[in-house]
């Protein structure tokens, strides 16, 4: 299915797909095989791709449409309606700042701003090196630990502007150490 869809693209569109995205698309083609071909599976299919790959590549929407025999318009209409779906690949360290009621009252906005300043990206953006992405989420249900931030899978509680600094430093240190480890192994 993927090859057939790729064949319909013109050269500039093909060029816009990098290797990373192509690998995702290939994986999606395989994963879709396990999804029953009925229109009720539309949301579950999109969720599966979002969960596995962190975003919905453009062509994946077409693959879902074709697989479930619904129109691409239908798929796009659904994918853009719900908060869960992203259309760009997330950073390796996705950061979600909770702005539920309790976090808001306790200064979640300020935490978000601190991340923006520290990372040099705005909310809903991914840093150029794809290391970080930043978004706001409405309540992760850790209200008694406000303000809260989810870094990757881990929830950070009682975040302050100085803790923002600490979180980023920790990631950088880990990255640095992994790089050194790799260097050592290569040597």
């Amino acid at each position: 299915m993927l090859d057939r869809i790729l064949a319909t693209l013109d050269e500039s569109e093909k060029a816009a797909i990098d290797e990373e995205e192509l690998a995702v698309l290939k994986a999606v083609a395989d994963e879709l095989l396990s999804v029953p071909q009925e229109s009720l599976q539309l949301l579950p299919a999109l969720q599966m791709i979002q969960t596995k790959h962190g975003y919905l590549p453009r062509l994946a929407l077409r693959m879902v449409a074709e697989h479930l025999a619904v129109t691409i318009g239908n798929v796009y209409g659904i994918a853009t309606f719900y908060n869960q779906f992203r259309f760009n690949p997330p950073g390796r360290n996705p950061i979600k700042v909770c702005l539920g009621t309790a976090c808001h009252v306790k200064g979640g906005e300020i935490i978000l701003e601190n991340f923006e300043r520290r990372l040099g990206i705005k909310e809903n953006e991914t840093s150029e090196d794809r290391e970080y992405s930043l978004e706001r989420v409405a309540c992760i249900g850790c209200c008694a630990l406000a303000p809260a931030v989810v870094v990757g899978e881990k929830v950070e509680a009682y975040v302050t502007p100085s803790k923002v600094e600490g979180i980023i430093t920790e990631i950088e240190v880990r990255k640095e150490m992994a790089a050194r480890e790799q260097e050592k192994n290569e040597d």
């Binding site: 929407l61 129109t71 691409i72 318009g73 239908n74 796009y76 209409g77 309606f81």
Partner: peptide
């Protein structure tokens, strides 16, 4: 079809934007 949500809702041709 409609796309997006709330004040951002738009009538979309699809096709045009995506393919």
């Amino acid at each position: 079809s409609f796309a997006k949500r709330g004040m951002d809702t738009i009538v979309s041709f699809f096709g045009s934007e995506l393919d």
